[in-house]
Design a protein around this nucleic acid. Structure first.
Lengths: 147, 147
DNA sequence: TTTTCAGTGGATAAGCGTTTTCAATCATTA
DNA sequence: TAATGATTGAAAACGCTTATCCACTGAAAA
């Protein structure tokens, strides 16, 4: 935890930003909830438990800054709010979204390199990133359905 | 055009909805701009050229209804608005999104069936749909950059 | 030390896309 | 014709996000 925070502090200071107490708390919350893909509002609620004086605007500003620095990624699962996840090295992972319980499962893949190469030559499209979402039913919901 | 409209009328009436003049005009506009992936606002502006009295709420309501009937698909390229495309048979296609000019190129694929099967067994996740977006630079922007 | 100044944060208003409300209209049926 | 229900348009409300305002902080300059 402290290691990660020090790393983030360095990445902030490279661009002359400071790891203020608010940013520290937001990052801490993101680390602690790394599998949750929380929305801004959810982060705000979590952060307020530890510092009730923090403002919603600060949360939004911090998330924006962290995204610009590449520390955080913005996700887009449903249409009415943005969700966030910490950057996790260069492991390319994508999401399985359960249509019933809305749970989000991550999965890693290396199978798409070929497809990228194909697109590159076929469409003259220079691929720099991709986002894949699979929709379906997770193990839990499938079991519940069988009952 | 008229063929398609008749087909849509049938699909509406199956669920006891009517092809009103507003819905007809919206569908007509969607057919005419089938490669544009227009947003609700853009559809509204297009539709108003032919019927200046149509309301924005009607456009939103019609788009919602057409999505529910599967005639239309909601897309999610940028965060601040939804875009729409007519359902086009069972051709599974995805999108290449140019980061420079924001142009959206469609591409078809059959290469993902294997990946779905893999996910199915590995994660016990029952995949029913997937959405893939590749981000990069289109042929035009690549050429412009070379100059 | 005092002053200055950029960076930051909190409260709140504003912005923007979307949804809801409500009265009016239209089509269909009795 | 009267009644009923679906649909519409205008405007208000809504929810998430961004911008504005002013106060505070902490470091550099005078």
């Amino acid at each position: 935890m402290e290691d990660k925070l020090r790393e983030y502090e360095e990445r902030l200071s490279e661009k002359n930003f400071k790891l203020t107490s608010q940013r520290r708390l937001i990052l801490k919350t993101l680390i602690e909830n790394i599998n949750e893909h929380p929305s801004a509002e959810e982060i705000y609620q979590l952060v307020r438990k530890q510092n009730p004086h923090i403002g919603l605007a600060t949360v939004y500003r911090s998330l924006e800054l962290l995204c610009e620095l590449g520390i955080l990624h913005e996700l887009n699962f449903d249409n009415n709010c943005r969700r966030y996840e910490l950057e996790q090295g260069d492991k390319h992972h994508h999401h399985l979204i359960c249509l019933k319980c809305r749970k989000i499962v991550e999965f890693n893949d290396d199978m798409l390199k070929n497809l990228e190469d194909h697109i590159q030559s076929q469409y003259e499209f220079d691929v720099v990133d991709h986002r894949i979402k699979f929709y379906g039913y997770c193990a839990d919901c499938r079991k519940a359905q069988d009952k």
